[in-house]
């Protein structure tokens, strides 16, 4: 009996070591929740900025005034960049806290592998979206951000918790829908970056951190 429990312990240790050495386990559910809340606040501010663009739009002086989108583009870009920085910052903070709690180092080979697989599709997406904006073809921006973000998550999902893979698939589906229903871009954005992050954050928090 005693040797049997040692064998069970051995197997447990093998599994644990395989997990610990191949997956980034410091990702916290709280990271998702906080990033989602920041995205929701950002979406509300974006809504007001876009609304202001509409109020100042005078069809009568159409040719004399700059196009409304060009006027709100800069505030929207600043907003978008701030949301990304704050969301990443909060995600990093909660990962750092989880790593410290479990006595893991936040920066190791699993972190590097996760980030390189995340950032290749993500940076491709950033360039593609800049091209879209440059061509005044902003109808597909919401769709493209969701699709590229989803692809990045699917790609990185192999190196962290499996839930990230499904979060990625959900983002891709939303991105395709946002491409079909182009006028509801902000709504799909809000669902994809706000609601889904909070939802998956809760699932991961309850599964692994309680």
């Amino acid at each position: 009996m005693d040797t049997n429990s040692k064998k069970i312990q051995d197997l447990k240790e093998i599994k644990d070591m395989m997990e610990r050495s191949s997956r980034f386990l410091s990702l916290s559910g709280l990271s998702g929740i906080s990033a989602g809340i920041i995205a929701l606040i950002g979406a509300v501010i974006a809504y007001f900025i876009m609304d202001m663009g509409k109020i100042e739009y005078h069809p009568y002086f159409y040719l004399l005034q700059p196009l409304p989108f060009e006027r709100i583009l800069f505030p929207l870009l600043i907003l978008g960049i701030s949301v990304v920085i704050l969301a990443l910052g909060s995600a990093l903070f909660f990962s750092w806290r989880k790593a410290r709690k479990h006595d893991l180092s936040l920066w190791n080979h699993t972190t590097r592998r996760l980030l390189s697989h995340l950032f290749i599709p993500l940076i491709t997406g950033v360039f593609f979206i800049l091209i879209l904006i440059d061509r005044n073809d902003e109808t597909l921006v919401a769709s493209a951000t969701l699709i590229f973000y989803g692809l990045a998550l699917v790609n990185a999902g192999k190196y962290t918790f499996g839930e990230i893979h499904y979060l990625g698939i959900s983002e891709i589906i939303l991105g395709i829908l946002a491409g079909i229903f182009v006028h509801y871009g902000l709504i799909f954005w809000t669902i994809g970056f706000g609601v889904l992050h909070i939802l998956y954050g809760f699932v991961m928090y309850y599964r692994y951190e309680r």
Binding site: E13, I14, K15, M17, M18, S21, S22, H109
Partner: peptide
């Protein structure tokens, strides 16, 4: 056991 486990998946 630990060394081998790490190498099996990396």
């Amino acid at each position: 056991l630990g060394i081998m486990s790490v190498m099996m998946v990396n």
